[in-house]
Amino acid sequence: MTNPSTAATAVETDEVLRVTDLRTTYQFRGLPVPAVKRFSLSVKPGEIVGLVGESGSGKSTALKSILGMLRPPAQVEAEEIILTGRDLRSLSEEEMRKVRGGEMAMIFQDPINSFNPSWTIGSQFRRVLSLHRPDLERKEYDEEILRLLKGVGIDGRGKLNSYPFQFSQGQLQRIMIAVACASKELKVLLADEPTTSLDVTIEAQVLELLRTLRVERNLSMVLVTHDLSVVAEMCDKVVVMYAGQVVEVADVFNLFESPQHPYTQQLLQAIPGFPHDGERLYAMRGAVPGLATEIQGCWFADRCDSKLGSICDTTPPPLYPVTATGGLAACHRVPDPAIAGGEGKNS
């Protein structure tokens, strides 16, 4: 695919989904836990945007916030969350229920918890069809379910009366994808680790299915994954998060060729080779600071291999535009193109 998409500049017109300045705060023992602090996203029709980042950096939280799935004491604020021209924050709970699973659906990270354990898979699936597929008659449901399951590589015959715990993790993950794709109105699919429990042959098949949906239905996707091979395989654009903030936005080719943010650079360095020679794996030193920590400068400074100097500890870097690539990166190195890019490793 040649997709000229570059950075999310927040003012693009041709967008299905636009989120600006999302902030989500959980409460823990009466204290705020700012899980998402700076998050914006722009998705065009048919575009696949990858969302990657440190475990705990707020990826799942961001997606759940967009879909309006978090309840108090969690607090969600945003300048705008616009899906096909409508701001979702102005919708009633009833209208949001129609959006979820209708125009926008989510595939959750923990498949088993996304199903009701005491209902059979068939009955849960039929309920989704009754909500989102007015074109079908009740007696056509099972046929449609089997067809949708087949699309994700599951032979559902004899299995519709089984309960969620009777499926393997990878089977549930695929069933969830089939459920998410049931609606004909679907415009945006938010997929949280959709292929982690799949073997690579079935993963290839599911990715192929998602690509087909993109081509045939012009479906857009936000794909959260830790598997950078999946990002390389699928995405047009990538958003990188660290400690609740977007630290880099780049076209996928630029991301792999010339990552701008040191976190992205160090992340790419940690990809293990295959086959592996048994050499010790590179891992970033240290860990993410606790989210409630007061940090003046850059959140990545303590682990950064390319730290500039005291500015990194004192001043939070904004998302700077990267002129060479059209991307964005939150690093003080970026404004000076002479030192930006992968080469500056002297700290």
Binding site: G53, S55, E193, Q266, A270, R280, L281, A283
Partner: peptide, 17 residues
Amino acid sequence: DEPTASLDVSVRAQVMN
């Protein structure tokens, strides 16, 4: 059983080490 499936590559490397 899939102990590192939901970990980013750096944390995964740490766990594998």
